[in-house]
Simulated assay, not measured.
Amino acid sequence: MLFAHDTECGLTAAAALVNTDGRDGEGLPDIAALDRFVTANQWTGRHERTDAELHAVRALRPRLRRLWDDDPDTVVAVVNDLLRESRALPQLIRHDDEPYHVHAVPRDAPLATRMAVEAAMAVADLVRGDELGRLRHCAHPECPNVLVDLSKNRSRRFCDAGCGNRVAVSAYRARKAAGGRP
């Protein structure tokens, strides 16, 4: 593990949320989809299952996408804005058999607020560790997705949507068509 567990969870959940607004259309079309997202990303605490909550979570995505900006000053401004707007107050918390970790808003804060703050806190760790390069855009030229490279050797290039496989298959087919080795 390169980062604290809560940092890794915050980063991967932020990337997953940003990617729900991707090339395949709306990834959070309804409350049931948001429920699946919350479960898949192990969000705990308040979850209202309302249209207002769904709209608030969707509205957060463009702001979180800015965390993948190449300019560190832009990233820091977004992080600071998210934390300030949410009135974040970091505290050590232990719940659900997890060791102590940092929460900066109460578990009963609105879901979109908790998502924003968790992402901001996780990215703050990257900024402090001079590791913003781990926030990347998928290397597939037609993919708008973002990713978090948590590999030790910083080698991850593709998102989880199968882009790496598509590139490998295309290269294989091109070699085969050219009469090269498979």
Score class of each variant (00 low, 15 high):
residue 91 Q to L: 00
residue 23 R to A: 14
residue 98 E to M: 09
residue 28 L to P: 15
residue 95 H to Q: 02
residue 75 V to N: 14
residue 135 L to F: 00
residue 24 D to P: 11
residue 53 E to V: 01
residue 67 L to I: 14
residue 1 M to E: 15
residue 97 D to F: 06
residue 161 A to Y: 03
residue 133 G to H: 10
residue 142 E to G: 07
residue 51 D to W: 02
residue 74 T to S: 05
residue 117 V to M: 06
residue 123 V to H: 09
residue 119 A to Y: 05
residue 174 A to Q: 11
residue 110 P to W: 02
residue 145 N to F: 03
residue 122 A to N: 12
residue 28 L to A: 07
residue 178 A to E: 07
residue 98 E to S: 10
residue 154 R to S: 03
residue 105 V to E: 02
residue 153 N to Q: 04
residue 152 K to A: 08
residue 64 L to S: 09
residue 133 G to R: 12
residue 95 H to A: 04
residue 59 A to I: 01
residue 145 N to T: 01
residue 132 L to I: 11
residue 6 D to L: 10
residue 40 A to R: 00
residue 63 R to C: 04
residue 57 V to R: 01
residue 116 A to D: 10
residue 145 N to C: 04
residue 162 G to C: 06
residue 13 A to D: 14
residue 15 A to D: 07
residue 55 H to W: 08
residue 58 R to L: 02
residue 103 H to D: 10
residue 113 T to G: 11
residue 127 V to P: 12
residue 143 C to A: 01
residue 18 V to D: 10
residue 27 G to D: 10
residue 112 A to R: 02
residue 58 R to Y: 03
residue 16 A to T: 07
residue 95 H to G: 03
residue 52 A to M: 00
residue 53 E to A: 00
residue 69 D to S: 15
residue 55 H to C: 01
residue 19 N to T: 12
residue 180 G to H: 13
residue 139 A to I: 02
residue 32 A to D: 15
residue 101 H to G: 05
residue 55 H to K: 03
residue 3 F to Q: 08
residue 105 V to C: 01
residue 153 N to S: 14
residue 140 H to Y: 01
residue 17 L to Q: 12
residue 161 A to Q: 02
residue 168 A to P: 06
residue 114 R to M: 05
residue 67 L to Y: 11
residue 37 F to C: 04
residue 92 L to S: 12
residue 78 V to Q: 05
residue 165 N to G: 12
residue 92 L to A: 10
residue 123 V to M: 08
residue 181 R to G: 13
residue 2 L to H: 06
residue 138 C to I: 00
residue 153 N to L: 15
